[in-house]
Nucleic acid binder design. Sequence first.
DNA 1: ACAATATATGAGCAAATGTTCATGTATTTA
DNA 2: TAAATACATGAACATTTGCTCATATATTGT
Lengths: 124, 124
Amino acid sequence: MAEFCEVNVIHEDILARVRERMPEEAPIFEVSELFKMFGDSTRARIICALHIEEMCVCDLAALLNMTHSAISHQLRLLKTARMVKYRKVGRVVYYSLDDAHIGEIFALAFTHVMEREGGTSDGA
Amino acid sequence: MAEFCEVNVIHEDILARVRERMPEEAPIFEVSELFKMFGDSTRARIICALHIEEMCVCDLAALLNMTHSAISHQLRLLKTARMVKYRKVGRVVYYSLDDAHIGEIFALAFTHVMEREGGTSDGA
DNA sequence: ACAATATATGAGCAAATGTTCATGTATTTA
DNA sequence: TAAATACATGAACATTTGCTCATATATTGT
């Protein structure tokens, strides 16, 4: 029974090297928050749609066959995560992707998934 | 009171165009499942570490300051999502990223986050 | 064979998440 | 001004998630 030294690291060398090159916790946390937004199929479909064209809440609801409320809640999250922007025309609010990177990241992941299992190469 | 037609689509033209180019639901679902794996800071840190070097459960637990059990549970999820692979040497199990794409996707998102708010450009 | 070690896993639990429902706000039209 | 429309949002609720704890399995060393 080791009563004093409970430090139980198998490979100190590996650990040292990884610690050296490991990024700060804060940016990793932010990246995971960004991915979290992609990580729900409703939001993923919204992003996918907005990657094609600017849309209003009503059209998104019709496209995804969901209530306006559900869409609106999700858009609020995407807005907070700075992934979508909007412009108001009268009482209609048009949403679009806030940054080209958002579409790129989604497209890269889509390609990965399609390559993984001989997909039908649908354009994303 | 419209009693018959409850179809309430604002922009039929936009909707038609988006429907035309929208990918199937199944692959979008898979992409969101993939992103879900990135969308937790513990898993994001694991992926980040394995992007640097192959590691065993014990070392990962030490690096991230978490229990072996927690790490093991997360590795099981990553394994199921085909994001990590492993090799056994005696009773030690070394994990590494299963596909180069995984690292690419993470790196791209990391870059996006760092560019967004003048980060310290830590290599991911 | 037995103890120690490295990892895996099921159950339980608190916290987070996504939807619905009801209601509020802003804008347009009659 | 009043009704209708497009959207936003708080509360409630069921589901999912991620951790801990206990226990199981496999491998090594004595």
